[in-house]
Design a protein around this nucleic acid. Structure first.
Lengths: 280, 280
DNA sequence: CTGGGAACATACCTGAGCGGTATCGGCGGC
DNA sequence: GCCGCCGATACCGCTCAGGTATGTTCCCAG
């Protein structure tokens, strides 16, 4: 199977319409019909049900759609990584991606320690939105990431644990509970008039009453405005913001900061960075 | 990047010789040279160093080699899975892969329980050699596997734990220790004249003195012949073989049998099988 | 019932590009 | 210095991807 065929099939499977798919691909409709027919003939069965009033996927078509998307992602990642390794532009060394506003202290220490290592290369830091680190690694835009289990999935990645910590509730300082010295998980279920923050996890937002946020600034600002609370790793206390207080939650699940990288990564610079991180 | 280009590049990168690579690909050498040059031009940098006395990989070439192999594997898997879903031959339902000779009892119970479920499909069982389950899943020849942590890696797979158990030492019944009622890990380091069995793990055999085995029959036979001992999960005691004895090893690391399947699997039949397994 | 239109398939043509043969250029060994 | 090995280049033919025109089928309007 050629990637061209996969791209064509994905376009048709997503549009469920040959002419629209052809337009999206920048080709005419007949060659697209022919390419799909050839693909079906080669795979030995129908992928699409043609109803003369649109198109639907067969079971095999659904399988191929999922597989083809994954395969195209892998190929795009391969191209990006190779192009980055090719030294065509400025040789950026390593790209590290981390949630903006998280693990600031750990990240600083890591970068300092690594820069002090003999033979270390330049590390470009990409501070992304919440939950974007995994995709950045997988699609080849980054070499290494800081993730936070159990929020971020490490499926399909290699990783090393760096730091495990408890969590604190982050509340508006105007809130009646802001003077408490500690909380329990059960308390959080019914904070008077304060819903939990929601952020992307596993590709989308969970259902619930609270506001949706994409990054830490939104999060702190919404808390300061008294619109929600959040449960964050202890290290968030190092962040000083106006209008918020942090209170330990004794029985909150622990959060582990991990350093993660794509499987079958063979870079010496990456290995050195990971080694430095685990020794912090 | 087309898969044809990736196949060509992998062939050259593995052979480090254009003419041999061309022969392996079944084409002539000049088109191969041209294809690689085009690929290099498109990626914006050299992948190979031509020394007129053979070929070596550049850093970018090493990156692309690893990435291209992974991408080609994903594409092969996509094709196999689609072809299996295409119903061209007998519709085998699900293919479950497990180490031959391991988890026999669990497997029997699982298959019986699943067959009794309403709406269950036929399950083909593929009993493979030690350490072959992961590859079978990843390359699309199987839908679901029974693995044994920590021996088998679940990297890149989704999984559910089924059963955790201790381990037993399997010794020749002629061995002086065969009458002992229990052992400790420290004892095993110096069993008089009996090396530990070695089996494939992580793609190859570890170094060591013991004999190498690929499947359970070899293993039991070599133990009965007094050539090695093995450390196996307790459930192996259910296997009755001549000439061997099993002795609990009190402080051996625990082994967890897990059911695993490819990420982004969307099959309802698979979900039902996994649900059945976790309820056993 | 019939004409029109929407949508995919078919027919046929053209040209890009893949693969083949012949040959060149560079380098190391004898 | 000649020969042999190996990759690059030149050139050619043919396959096949992509374009245009048209066919076939079905739905729907009137």
């Amino acid at each position: 199977m050629e990637t061209r065929e996969l791209r064509y099939f994905v376009a048709v499977a997503e549009e469920l319409h040959f002419s629209r798919a052809a337009a999206r691909l920048g080709i005419a409709q007949p060659p697209l019909s022919r390419a799909i027919s050839q693909l079906e003939r080669r795979l030995g069965g129908a992928l699409l049900e043609r109803n003369s009033r649109g198109v639907t996927l067969t079971d095999a078509g659904r399988v191929l759609l999922a597989e083809a998307r994954a395969a195209l992602d892998v190929i795009d990642a391969a191209e990006r990584r190779t192009r980055r390794a090719t030294g065509d532009g400025a040789e950026p060394g390593l790209v590290l991606v981390s949630k903006a506003g998280a693990s600031t202290e750990l990240l600083t220490k890591l970068l300092d320690a690594y820069a002090a290592e003999p033979g270390s290369v330049k590390v470009e830091v990409d501070l992304c939105g919440i939950g974007q680190q995994g995709p950045r690694l997988r699609d080849g835009r980054a070499d290494v990431a800081l993730l936070h289990r159990p929020f971020d999935s490490v499926d399909g990645l290699d990783s090393e644990d760096l730091l495990t910590e408890g969590q604190v509730a982050v509340l508006p300082s105007s809130h009646p509970w802001s003077t408490r010295s500690q909380l329990r998980m059960a308390d959080l279920d019914d904070i008077p008039g304060l819903p939990p923050m929601r952020w992307p996890s596993g590709g989308g937002y969970a259902d619930g009453p609270g506001p949706e946020v994409r990054d830490s600034m939104q999060l702190y600002q919404l808390i300061a405005l008294g619109r929600a609370y959040a449960l964050l790793p202890e290290s968030a206390r190092a962040e000083q913001h106006h209008g918020i207080v942090t209170i330990p939650v004794l029985d909150a699940p622990e959060v582990t900061t991990v350093i993660a990288w794509p499987q079958h990564s063979r870079s010496l610079a990456l290995a050195a960075l990971v080694r430095t991180a685990t020794r912090l």
